[in-house]
Amino acid sequence: MRLLPLAMLMVPALGLAGGGYVTLPGGSYKSVLAYEDTGGTVTLAPFELMKRPVTNAEFLKFVRRLPQWQRDRVPSVFAESRYLAHWASATALGSAALPEQPVVMVSWFAASAYCEAAGARLPTWNEWEYAAAADATRADARADPAWREQILSWYAKPSNQPLAEVGQSPANHYGVQDLHGLVWEWTEDYASMLVSADNRTQQEQDRLQFCGAGAIAMDDRENYAVLMRVALLSSMEAANLTSNLGFRCARSIDEGTP
């Protein structure tokens, strides 16, 4: 018989929730991705989101429990060759991957598997965007130029310096940390961002490529801070990874939500 890697994921939660989860109330908000069919208004059910991104230490625990996700065993369809390449070995972190740094160089498949093993899932883009719209005091701080400037200042930092440890930034309105200024983060439905690789011809190309309704329109062109995240995610395939791309997990509260 053949071992089915994802079957392994049915293992119950392994205590991989790190900093723990916080509950977000859900509700309606305006997404920066204004799809034709939604007009950009999104309604979210309450959900739980990890307070901090998953760390190297947590991910190490995961690959020790589920060895098929170790870098020398994972099939290349699930993670490209540089998967966890900054670790000292398949099962040791080393100096380039400190325990409390966010784990990066992980593919979408690996991130999804981690969350499943933790009895959770990756957050949807809308959940992530909703949580990340907050600052320390407001649920939606996106109209504040200071909020935007702060996000942009991360883009201005060269990325060849070591990543900070998780949990260094102040908690936002919901109690979530590090949504901005530390790493990019995978979302469950990152592949649903039908963003053209050449966004200048957005409308025309989307119609050719994706056919039918629901073309994306980036109405809120001012909100480039978030759009750059969209650009990054839309450049990725599920087996891809980068030295700045990590993840955190989410859980539905109401089982009935889609």
Binding site: Y155, S159, W184, S196, A197, D198, R200, T201, Q205, M228, A231, L232, S234, S235, M236, E237, N240, T242, S243, N244
Partner: peptide
């Protein structure tokens, strides 16, 4: 940190190569 692409004005074709060269880190 960023994905990038290239539009060469010397190219005859959609986007000057932009869509074909969209490249993740």
């Amino acid at each position: 940190k960023m994905p990038h692409n290239i539009d060469l004005h010397a190219v005859t074709g959609p986007g000057g190569g932009a869509a074909s060269s969209f490249t993740a880190p």
